[in-house]
Amino acid sequence: MSRLAVEISEAGYGPVTVLRDVELEVPEGGRLVILGANGAGKTSILRTISGLCRVSGSIRWGDAELVGAPPYRVAAAGIAHVPQGRGTFGDLTVRENLLVGGATRQRRTALADADRWLERFPRLGERASRAASGLSGGEQQLLAIARALMSAPRLLLLDEPSLGLAPKITVELFATLDELCAETGTAMLLVEQNAELALGIAEQAVILESGRITIRGPAAELRDNDDVRRAYLGV
């Protein structure tokens, strides 16, 4: 039903244009991964969808047009965004972080949901009343994802969740992510450097180079594409 259809003709920051002619779609419950080198503009795509960049073009979300909407309205429309670097509220407690994630929902539902997350992830539960800044990198990323899911979104935007995490933790995190989104049927738009893992849980993939999409197709096909393997899978 809700479906994201992005048609950016130009997007950027102030006078700087970073993205040109970027078109992509995420179907209801679908999963798309954006791969690309550092500085290609991956983060900028997510920030443009969330209303944090200057943009011309159209971003349709179901029947709604998101271009021109402030970030908090995009969030309220059911798009949760875990920014690069996690964006945790360091001086709020772990439980408060979750409750902020549920800010757009009924207080009672949010409270019950926060407890559910704390139970489900004992590492967060044990630290429920501690400041989030005291968590390890992996725990903070988990918290950021749980916080995003607290809003019961229809689409989750994830910006390099593996950044700064040990490989073993990253593998665990992706398994959890896969599980959580499958459970709730939440669509996912994932930005990653770790192409191997990302292509493993995505359905579709695009490759971004200098602000333009150069390759697109089913994730499984890109995995077998020689150019992609050489450039992004280190083979």
């Binding site: 969030a75 920014p83 964006g87 916080r147």
Partner: peptide, 8 residues
């Protein structure tokens, strides 16, 4: 920024 992204 994170607050805005959480719908605040």
């Amino acid at each position: 920024e994170s607050a805005e992204l959480s719908g605040i």
